[in-house]
Design a binder for these strands. Sequence first.
DNA 1: CCCCATTTGTTCGTATGTATG
DNA 2: TCATACATACGAACAAATGGG
Lengths: 232, 232
Amino acid sequence: MLRRNEVAAGIKDYILRHHLKPGDLLPTEAELCEAVGASRSSVREAVKTLSALDIVEVRHGHGTYVGRMSLAALVESLAFRGLLSSEDDHLVLGEVVDVRQNIEQGFAPQVAQGLDTDQLARLRTLAAGMAEAAERGDDYLELDKQFHLLLMEPLGNDLIQQLTGAFWEVQSIVTPTLGSEHQGALTLTASLHMAIVEAAEARDAAALRTAVAAHYDPIRELIASVRRPSTA
Amino acid sequence: MLRRNEVAAGIKDYILRHHLKPGDLLPTEAELCEAVGASRSSVREAVKTLSALDIVEVRHGHGTYVGRMSLAALVESLAFRGLLSSEDDHLVLGEVVDVRQNIEQGFAPQVAQGLDTDQLARLRTLAAGMAEAAERGDDYLELDKQFHLLLMEPLGNDLIQQLTGAFWEVQSIVTPTLGSEHQGALTLTASLHMAIVEAAEARDAAALRTAVAAHYDPIRELIASVRRPSTA
DNA sequence: CCCCATTTGTTCGTATGTATG
DNA sequence: TCATACATACGAACAAATGGG
């Protein structure tokens, strides 16, 4: 009885055959049991698997719906891997930083050309808000996330938006294992975001690339300092 | 009783608290029930969720182990999203191609400098094998995948290796919905891979960037032709 | 080879929590 | 308040796979 993968595949087939779109309602568990020929428990476990992948979405007392297939699964898996490796040398965290930097640098030309005046103004507002928060000694996680999401907005590529958000979340989950952040690093990082804004306002792709690279220097330094406590 | 996320979090906590590494054996389902205070059904569903994310790995009749945390979940989620959107305009497939190209172009300098003679020789062998297969009219999926994985090898970044493999798999799953591939496209793509090899052998980062970009032209053309059948 | 213990896989029945009308 | 429909949770039983004596 290899119901395990069969049932999940059967449900995915059902979605494809009926041309269901994200948000559409799926049959009840009982009807799914009949459709794929399995018991409620097996269907439940299959639904649980698909739910973890955000292929379906379950709302208690309401029903099961086709999911929006977000990258929440990627976040959870990568974040946990990062937490595990944080006990050693924070290898995963460094790799995530590399990938984030490469994405933002690679699309610098399209970003520098594509940002409209409204998006540029919002970027400046976010960077200014980060500087103000740093002055008060507060962190600015949500501002930082919005900044990087907004930066990729002109690409019109939803996958890149989601990857940007996903890798940002992984980094924000794993970074605290490095230790406390100093206010000096907060202020510095805020100013580096403003430098990105100014390069974007100048439509200077090369300057944008270097500003993005410089923006990741503090986190790289922090990772390196933890790997060799002698320099700390 | 919102055991749902509690139990999964409890199991993840157990792994972190006991400093378990990928491949280590977890307690039996019965012991996990006692450890987190839930019924076997609930524990099983939580394990199923973690299994979908490759955080744990279950072997029938043997036990439950800490997983490798691969990006299989990302592949399954993205591939299904691509299959759903394939009924419309293949939006997701185009986005995946954009991301793949950006990654390979962005790391072109490190790749051009970092490839050793053995890796270059293997790249040439793979590209030659693709050309031979195209001559016979055969496809060369596995050769193509190995090619792109090998290209990223000198970076020494495991996350990039896995992302490369994951996006490659998504593309290979979704692409067949575009229609049959012509032998002409196969031969052309094979020669474009050889052009990448030659740019890498010359240690020419700029040439490598353009060769990588050109390599994605056929698939972009195929997507565009399906979106407007009038030009086909 | 068979037998047996261990462990996960599948199914069913029942009771409870939740949202809609 | 009540009724209905649904997902959630638990416990028990049996099936299937693995490994060792």
